[in-house]
Amino acid sequence: MRQNERLIVAACADTLFPPGGPIPVSGTEAGLVTYIAAYLRKLSRGRRLLIRLLFLFIELSPLVFGPRRTLFTRLQHDDRVRVFEQMAGSAMYLRHMAVLSLRTLMTMGYFACPEVAAAIIRRPPKEVTP
């Protein structure tokens, strides 16, 4: 992943899962940047391109739709939250699907962090043995 893409992923990760919340692990602390980079490496070129375009779409989105006409990574946390909320409720299907796809990717990575999984699945299922 390129450096600018890492910044976008980190911004998205901490917008969805900010520090100091009820789950005491933020998105970046959960290793989401590393997770997404590894995930992308293992995808086919075509699929990787689609996800890169998704990141670019998020980054440029505020320039067109607000709330401030600047890049997503340059917004304050509250404005980033507004960007995602507006996208989630948008009548434009592409915007709606973009944030849903991003949310799915990020949530998969968040759950892959053992501390997060332990916090959410407080009573883990019984040990699985063949």
Binding site: T15, L16, G21, V81, F84, E85, M108, I121
Partner: peptide, 25 residues
Amino acid sequence: APPAILATRLPGIGHLYQRNLLNFD
């Protein structure tokens, strides 16, 4: 389904999303 996939359906962004995740059980 895998919990992470299902959890995507929970509403909220940021701390609200995290609070909802804690109620997943």
